[in-house]
Design a protein around this nucleic acid. Structure first.
Lengths: 205, 205
DNA sequence: AATGTGTGTTACCGGTCAGTAACGTCCCAA
DNA sequence: TTGGGACGTTACTGACCGGTAACACACATT
């Protein structure tokens, strides 16, 4: 189906995108990064296309409008997030309890290394217009993530697995958003210990 | 000096702002509401002025630029938030433990009645430009809020008062942001019980 | 050699938005 | 009565932004 890699010439790769990928992938990748830096409403499609070493026309040939590009970015972000569940299974195969600790550890590390918060949450904050297509993407991804964690808690042998999972989600989401609004010195510093203590408490009975 | 209420004529109050207040107050009030509805970057100064029953020129006479108006709105929002501490003291005078439960109850109710999240957090998400004046306003307000809660936990006789306060902040912030991104069916439904259980656990030793 | 697809380039449109200028009006205080 | 301060109105600027049109080019397939 006519998919030739654009490795042809010594591509004058203007920006950060060292090619080998096709324009579509480069555009999505650049868009994700620029949305992260400037917010969705804070960056224009022209700047995105340029950062991808492409141009606005090509962008609009792949995505009918900016909102479609936004949705594609959010889908990609959430599918990358989904990978954590198989990574945890690989790291601690057949040990759901350890996987749960691993999930906490991962979350805590991510929060300390990046104070820009969750892409999905940030998008939800920006895109308030009723019925915006991105809202469904965000909601579905978040629900799926919660559901995965609930399932992990159940497999870890926790009786009140749903309560534990929900509390952990609140703590982690709260920690991310605190890092974003308060900065490093926020109340999210003891996130890991708090989560682990909570897991311990729920694991006893 | 020279502060006469503009009650003069049967003001053709175009919009939602039933006057009696002066333009400045009406503009701030309208801006807070419209920022809440559409986001800061999602509404223009013209629409704000009109909703306030005023006009852009008057707005710019009171606020040098949009960012200044944003800062003023955030300051007002946070000072309104501050009122909860005296309200709690009024409701349960000399009973910090009950005040703490009251704080949780208040937060839980607010989250269920309004899924639009915290104005300060939302502003922090939107205003990412390095050195934006609103960032300091947000940070100061959030830090003060956390500090107030820490102090309340201490006064409530909790030994590890700082840990408890920080965990409660994470839970509540997480709950707000979950309501915003997931909707009513999010994991924030059991927020109150979770917080109360946490307070119980911390109060025992 | 001919064709078609994906891509790049330039230019444009219409709309919105932050911010300003100039002028007029109303009302209060002196 | 008069002056001044606060406010309203209209019109404008310059920038940006989402989206489109038209044309050119490069390349792979046939």
């Amino acid at each position: 189906m006519s998919s030739a890699p654009s490795k042809t010439i010594a591509d004058n790769s203007d920006k950060l995108v060292t090619t080998l990928e096709r324009p579509r992938e480069r555009i999505v990748k650049s868009a994700i990064e620029l949305f992260r830096q400037h917010g969705i409403k804070g960056i224009g499609v022209d700047a995105i296309a340029e950062a991808a070493g492409s141009n606005k026309m090509t962008l609009y040939r792949h995505f009918g409008c900016k909102d479609d590009l936004v949705c594609e970015c959010l889908k990609q972000v959430s599918s990358e997030k989904e990978r954590i569940w198989v990574d945890l299974e690989d790291a601690y195969p057949g040990e759901p309890a350890r996987q749960l600790r691993g999930w906490v550890d991962e979350a805590a590390q991510r929060i300390f290394n990046d104070l820009r918060g969750c892409d999905l949450v940030n998008a939800a904050v920006e895109l308030k217009e009723a019925g915006h297509p991105a809202q469904k993407v965000i909601m579905d991804a978040k629900k799926a993530h919660v559901q995965h964690l609930v399932e992990l808690c159940r497999r870890a042998g926790v009786q009140q697995y749903e309560q534990l999972a929900q509390a952990l989600v609140l703590l982690v989401e709260g920690a991310r958003v605190c890092g974003q609004s308060i900065g490093i010195e926020g109340p999210q510093q003891r996130l890991k210990q708090t989560c682990e203590a909570l897991i311990d408490a729920f694991s006893k009975h």
